[in-house]
Each structure stands twice: as structure tokens, then as C-alpha cells.
Design a protein around this nucleic acid. Structure first.
Lengths: 245, 245
DNA sequence: AGACTTTTAAATGTCAGACAAATAAAATCT
DNA sequence: AGATTTTATTTGTCTGACATTTAAAAGTCT
């Protein structure tokens, strides 16, 4: 583990970077125990609070976990897909909300990625994935459903589609794109009419997936993308017009 | 901002979560200044070091930045695409290295996502993106090129392809998938023969992109995927055979 | 001897108070 | 008025201490 140049004033960041590099570089193996805070403080010639700040940075990225007690300490964490999903969703949500990424751009990205999954999902989806899609589509036809519940169900359908591809890396990549858009989606699927259209396309999608027909699934997604983007444009335009009145 | 239940013992994590929720929920706007550490400590009824650990957690995720001095403090950070890329790459690298994700799975995901970009890139790429691809392909034909340099150039070609789609969300999503695989790719493109094949396909790809021909670009990527995965399988098999001897 | 209980030690979690360094605003001087 | 100095605020860091948790060691009883 390297030592820090004494010049700049952000020791905890430097220490965090040193340990992070050691983990990524393979010098520290999964479940390996790091030296105690006191030992690290001694090693880097800093105080324990400074070491602790560095460790908290790493903990925030799920790179380490800590355990109290006699044989406790900081351990290199095996980054689970769940942790990765959560980080991905947080990051994506912030990117969309803070960087003036238009709904249109986000939507294009989302459907592009989903269409990449469609042929794989058509080929490999389990009965379980298909059943989930069917169940969610059925729920979407309930009259009393709130907008939030409808959108959550919408996400669940697409999630099942992606998971059906059986590639956890793809599922991870898409988690952010799909989930981060949900708040935006909530604003545009308000009318009974649009729900009807969406349910119809979901049904077609499920049929294609059931039949193992990738190209048709792709075509449905393309139409769904087009419909969603047009709907969003109209909603935004209407909102803008109302705002200026 | 909510208060923490006094029960569990991880105050800094709770405080970090409270502030994070405030940022994601829009209660704290970009560039808004948070209360000083002393004020936060008073607010949450904890000590300053505890507050600092919470702030370092947020800083590790690029959610805040801090500034020393009279009118300094912690400010809500506008998450830049660059920061998001970096996090994405770190997370993806760890996922691949620690979760026994096979090269094959990662490769499938990568090409699926790239193929999603291909039609968009064929339609919208700038002259700059195309020039970058051509230049990198030219470099790949230099005889003295190291394996690392060849692979870096390979990544640059695919990067230019993805960026050519003009969708920053897609670029962000793909950054992890492509860059995280580079170390693995280094191991399989060692022979002159494979370089030759790859350069040929890169050239076809650039031609298709230049002609605005999405379907052909897609077909080339499909062949490149197949070639890469086959090559990787052979290399792995050879390595396994050598190891058992 | 073997199983259960108690003690102990090591580690993280938290706190308090202090000083250093940076920085912008206020006060002062030319 | 403009330039310079002072001052106040805030983060960065250190020292030292105590609380809490937890596993292992020591001790005790059957």
C-alpha cells in the first residue's frame, strides 16, 4: 500500500483511493480483513478519525463492510448485484434530474437497451418471467389502479423482459435506465386511453416473448417507444401552453 | 430533514441517508449550501466527527463537494457525466472481477448494448466520431503495437461508435460495460492473426457507419461478437489444458 | 472430562475539545 | 477610491477518552 504525499490537504480521500486501488488491483481479496483503524492510522501517519473518514468513503461504495467486536474490523466486501443495482439507480436518478437530460433522450436510451434484450429474452425467458409479465398486464387492467401503481407495474413488465434474457450484467445495466425514469413516466400515463394502448402493446410483447419471436418483440418495443415519446411530447407541450396562459 | 431513531448504532450512515434522500427528493437544490458541520451536528444531536463521516460518504458518491474557508461548506454537487462514468466503471469492474461473471456473459451484454447504439450512430455520428474510428483502426495496424495499446485502441473505436449515437445516457450506460472488460480483453487478442481479423471487422464497421447503414453495422457487430466469444472460449480452453498438464 | 457461564480483550462507534489552514468579508490605511 | 490588513467562519486534522459489541479465553459446575 502506497504512502501519501504530504502536500495536498485531503488525506482521507488519498487513503481511500489507496485502499480502493488495492482492492481493484487484487492486492486485497474478497473477505480479507483490513488492518485495524489504529494500525492503518499508524501506517499512514494520520489520526484515527482521518482513517475512519476514508473507510466511510469506501463503505459508501459498498467496497468494504465493517463489523464490531473482538474479531471485527473492515473487510473487503463482495459487491453484490443488489448493491450494484442500488448504486446504479441512485446515480441514474441524479443524472436525469440534475443534468437536464430530456425525457426524450432518457426514453431513447431505455428502449434501445431494452430492444437489445428482447431477442435474448424471447429465446431464453423462463416460464416464471412470462408469468410475471402476464400477471402484471392483468393488474394493469384493473380500473381502480392509481397512476403510481400502474407505472410500477409497467416497470415490472419491462423488468421481467430484461431479466428474461438471463444475463445479470444486462439486468444491472438496465436497472438504472428503467427505474430512474419511473418518476418521469408517472407524469404521462394519466389517461385511461393511454393505459389501454400500453396494455395492448404489453400484451403483444408478451405474446411475442411467449412465441420466442424476437423480431416481433423488437417491433412492438419500437412502437411502444414511439408511442411513449409522442405522448410525452404532447404532455410537455400541453403543460407549456397551460403555463404560459 | 428527518431525525434518526436512537436505536441502532450507525449514526453516520443514517445521517448520510437522510441528506441523500433530501438531495434526491429535491429538497436540496444543486449548488445549495448545506448547514455547517457544527450546525448539522447540533441538528442531529451528534458530534462533529460523526457528521463528517456522513459527509464523506456523500462525497464518495459525488453527491456533495466541500470547500474550506469563510463562505465554504458542503454544497450539493451537480453530478457530472464524467463522475457518473467513473463510478460506473469502478462498479462494473468490481462486479466482473468479484462475482464470477464469465467473460462470455460480459461479452454478450457488451455487444447487445453496442448493437443497440449502432443504428443511432449510423444515423447521427459526426465527422469527428468517424475520424476517430478511422484513426484508431489505422493505429491498430502498426506492427510494433503492444497488446495493451491495441486493446486500448479497440476500446476507443467502440467508444467512438457509442458516442456517435449522441445520447449521453447510452454512453454512460456503456462506459462500464466496455471499459470494465478491457483487462479481460487484453488476454485474448495476442496473436497477429486475431488482430488482422479484428481490424478487418472494424473497417467494415466504420464503412457501414460512414454510409449510414445501421443494419450492416449491426451485422458486423454480431460477427465481431461471435468471433470474440469463440476466440475467448478457445483461449480459456487452451489455458485450462495447459494448467492441467 | 465435558458443557455451560463468566470474564476479558480487541475492535469499531461515538464524543469532546483543540489547533491549523484556507478563504471571503470587513476594517483599516494610503 | 483603491489597496492592504485584519478578522471571522468553516473545513481539515489531531489527541484522548469512553461506550458498545463480540469472540475467545478463563473459570465453574455437573
Amino acid at each position: 500500500m502506497k504512502i501519501d504525499p504530504s502536500k495536498p490537504a485531503d488525506l482521507s480521500a488519498q487513503i481511500a483511493a489507496a485502499i480502493r486501488d488495492a482492492i481493484i488491483g487484487g492486492d486485497l481479496i474478497v473477505d480479507e480483513r483490513l488492518p485495524s483503524e489504529a494500525e492503518l492510522a499508524d501506517h499512514f501517519n494520520v489520526s484515527r478519525p482521518t482513517v475512519r473518514e476514508a473507510l466511510k468513503r469506501l463503505a459508501a461504495q459498498s467496497l468494504i463492510r465493517t463489523q464490531r467486536g473482538a474479531s471485527g474490523g473492515a473487510f473487503v466486501n463482495r459487491l453484490s448485484f443488489e448493491d450494484a443495482y442500488a448504486q446504479q439507480i441512485t446515480t441514474s436518478t441524479l443524472l436525469l434530474s440534475m443534468n437536464a437530460v430530456s425525457f426524450d433522450t432518457a426514453c431513447e436510451a431505455r428502449f434501445a437497451l431494452e430492444r437489445a434484450c428482447a431477442p435474448l429474452s424471447a429465446q431464453r425467458r423462463s416460464a416464471d418471467h412470462l408469468a410475471t409479465m402476464r400477471a402484471e398486464i392483468h393488474r394493469q387492467q384493473q380500473p381502480g389502479l392509481t397512476d403510481e401503481a400502474f407505472c410500477a407495474s409497467d416497470v415490472a413488465v419491462h423488468r421481467a423482459l430484461v431479466d428474461g434474457a438471463g444475463n445479470p450484467v444486462l439486468s444491472y445495466q438496465l436497472a438504472g435506465a428503467v427505474e430512474a425514469m419511473q418518476p418521469l413516466m408517472n407524469m404521462i400515463t394519466f389517461s385511461a386511453r393511454s393505459r389501454e394502448e400500453i396494455v395492448a402493446m404489453h400484451t403483444e410483447l408478451a405474446d411475442a416473448i411467449e412465441a420466442g419471436d424476437g423480431p416481433t418483440a423488437d417491433a412492438v418495443l419500437l412502437r411502444l417507444e414511439d408511442y411513449t415519446r409522442t405522448l410525452a411530447r404532447d404532455v410537455m407541450a400541453a403543460r407549456a401552453a397551460r403555463a404560459s396562459s
